[in-house]
């Protein structure tokens, strides 16, 4: 079987680098293939872009460099992108962590800060003077009398769901609301979010599907 296969796709040309083949073999065959193509495509002026598909092989940085250097020698060819069917475990874990809701049960005491970069389901106890911070949304089921900071520092899509009646402040992205229970009625179905006027606003959880459709799609995908 060939180490390098040229395929035509709807989106353009794709070169498949066989993941079972020796890499030096691939480089040699790729060179041959490109030279052949250059002679047959020599008349056309515009550059031809190739998508490189590496299958179940992850190219190392050095290998990517070699491939790119090879393409630079052929002026009318360029690489559109290099893509594999696989990712390494660290990247996968990171992605999983970021996309999943993190369940946290800690006690955040006065003067302490707890920060996350994913959505957080908080079942612990947030004391006065403590800060719970996340880049994503925060879903409060625990006691909260401290500061809740969602969408830190600039995620306007983040929301805070839960009973916020005894919370000191809610912050989302760059907006701040000092909570005064007299001005709002809070219960477990309250959601805080940034509205169209870029002001921190409160609403019912039942309206969240229309207010933040992206959030719901993400939750469905996770299931």
């Amino acid at each position: 079987m060939d180490s390098v296969v040229l395929k035509g796709r709807k989106t353009g040309y794709e070169i498949y680098l066989n993941d079972a083949a020796n890499f030096d073999e691939i480089m040699r065959e790729l060179n041959v293939l490109l030279q052949k193509l250059q002679t047959s495509e020599a008349k056309s002026d515009n550059q031809l872009a190739f998508a490189l598909e590496t299958g179940n092989r992850l190219l190392t940085k050095a290998q990517v460099k070699r491939v790119r250097e090879l393409f630079e020698r052929f002026t009318n060819f360029k690489i559109e992108h290099i893509q594999a069917k696989v990712i390494d475990i660290a990247t996968a874990k990171e992605a999983e962590r970021k996309n999943n809701i993190h369940v946290e049960m800690a006690v955040i005491r006065s003067g302490q800060e707890l920060a996350f970069d994913s959505d957080v389901l908080f079942l612990g106890n947030l004391h006065q003077g403590g800060v719970l911070r996340s880049h994503g949304s925060i879903f409060m089921l625990g006691q909260s009398s401290g500061i809740i900071e969602a969408g830190y520092p600039d995620n306007d899509e983040a929301v805070v769901v839960g009973d916020l009646s005894s919370t000191t402040q809610v912050r989302i992205s760059d907006t701040v609301e000092i909570i005064n229970p007299k001005n709002h009625s809070f219960d477990n179905s309250t959601v805080a979010l940034i509205n169209d006027l870029h002001v921190l606003d409160f609403d019912e959880v039942s309206n969240l599907a229309t207010l933040r459709p992206k959030l719901f799609r993400k939750m469905e995908e996770n299931q």
């Binding site: 005491r109 006065s110 003067g111 302490q112 004391h127 006065q128 003077g129």
Partner: peptide, 12 residues
């Protein structure tokens, strides 16, 4: 109580 809370946090 609030100060004690801070102190407990530091002790933990």
């Amino acid at each position: 109580v609030s100060d004690a809370d801070r102190v407990v946090g530091l002790l933990e």
